[in-house]
Amino acid sequence: MDRRRRIPRPAPVGTAAELDRGLQPERTTLAWSRTALACVVVSAVFLRWLEFYGLWLLLMPLLTLVAALTIAGTQHRRTRVGVHAIRHAEFDVDPLPMVLLLALAMVLGAAGLVFVVLA
């Protein structure tokens, strides 16, 4: 028996391309991916100070990696919710991801200010 058949796969995400030729949910999901990547890149710049500040500095990339993995893990659901919203012409905006992303950006900025002033 083919073992590959036993691997559970997530349900495929449909599209609403016939209603939404701009593919808005897909583009929004990609925008979240770019943002996650940007967060990781910013935290990676901090690693230049690793010798100066010590291993505590690894908390910065660790934090952004957790955020990036969280974003990646919710992408499937995000696209599915967006497609459902297009199909049913209703969308309940969830501000929590935006609030958390803003908090992450502020933490990165505040940490950068502290490290720059102390350097």
């Binding site: 939404d20 701009g22 949910p25 297009i86 012409a89 209703e90 969308f91």
Partner: peptide
């Protein structure tokens, strides 16, 4: 509730 495309 606005058009979902506007919110997205």
């Amino acid at each position: 509730t606005p058009d979902p495309r506007v919110s997205l």
